[in-house]
Write a protein that binds this DNA or RNA. Sequence first.
DNA 1: TCAAAAATGATATGTTGTATCTTAACACGC
DNA 2: GCGTGTTAAGATACAACATATCATTTTTGA
Lengths: 152, 152
Amino acid sequence: MGQHDHHEHHGDSLADAAQANLEKSGEKWTDTRAAIFDTLAGFSRPASAYDIADLVSTARGKRVAPNSVYRILDLFVANNLAMRVESANAYLANSHPGCEHDCIFLVCDTCGEATHVDDDSLSQQVRKVATSEGFKSIRPVIEVRGICQKCN
Amino acid sequence: MGQHDHHEHHGDSLADAAQANLEKSGEKWTDTRAAIFDTLAGFSRPASAYDIADLVSTARGKRVAPNSVYRILDLFVANNLAMRVESANAYLANSHPGCEHDCIFLVCDTCGEATHVDDDSLSQQVRKVATSEGFKSIRPVIEVRGICQKCN
DNA sequence: TCAAAAATGATATGTTGTATCTTAACACGC
DNA sequence: GCGTGTTAAGATACAACATATCATTTTTGA
Ligand SMILES: [Zn+2]
Ligand SMILES: [Zn+2]
Ligand SMILES: [Zn+2]
Ligand SMILES: [Zn+2]
């Protein structure tokens, strides 16, 4: 389905790529940001800001307030280090930061796992529909809720 | 863009169509349901359950609790009388109940208005992507956030 | 070293959504 | 009409998600 090549990072390699991308935008890779990114990347399913706040707080033995987590997640989303899954009110680490495109998320209603799919032709069509209606600053939200293969 | 013909109802005609469709499923068209549907249909933009609860409470001079509104909105969504806009945590009346398809919502970040678009070819492609990943009970969520023509 | 700017923390509050139990309305056989 | 089971709605409490405001800490750089 994918129409282009790109790396799928993981572990340290992913954190390094995330750091590089954030710094390229003139933003800093602080300890708090690193901890939040690591925690987010450690989830195998979309994580809520409160999930992350709890885990980071425990891991560091020092409370991180949810609003700080939201601030940093917003920064990540703006810089393509993470994506928000609207239908789950939750976030996913971007496994290929630097590679910018409209992601499609398939979210399982049973287990909560999200499958990340790219289909540039499809997302271009969605953009085209919005453009033809006169929309600007377009941000497609393409998700699918359902029951995943494992849960069937 | 639309690949099929259907009526766009409005006002009493819409409420009548909604009632007919709900009753066809063996559900009752109660006063509370009618009031909630009318209020929802009166909004020109996606309305939250709490918006609706407030307006219905005022209109009837008798409090309707939000959980009742949620219950009835869920019923409406299940019976295609209303749709949930995930990226807005809000609901829209279906202007063509009985005509079932995957709607595309273009939501303005500035004014909050939502434009409803149908594109069966596009939604079929989204379903196909999910099917090819082994998903069942598929419910596409296709929305676009952006700035509408009027707000530009 | 000092002042400005950026990042994070603390706290409060607003918004959205669900769980549980109670009460009211309705339907239907008797 | 009367009892009984079923469905709808109300009351209440609380959980989950999100933002606003102001204070404190850290970083930066003259
Ligand atoms: Zn990619
Ligand atoms: Zn699953
Ligand atoms: Zn239609
Ligand atoms: Zn607008």
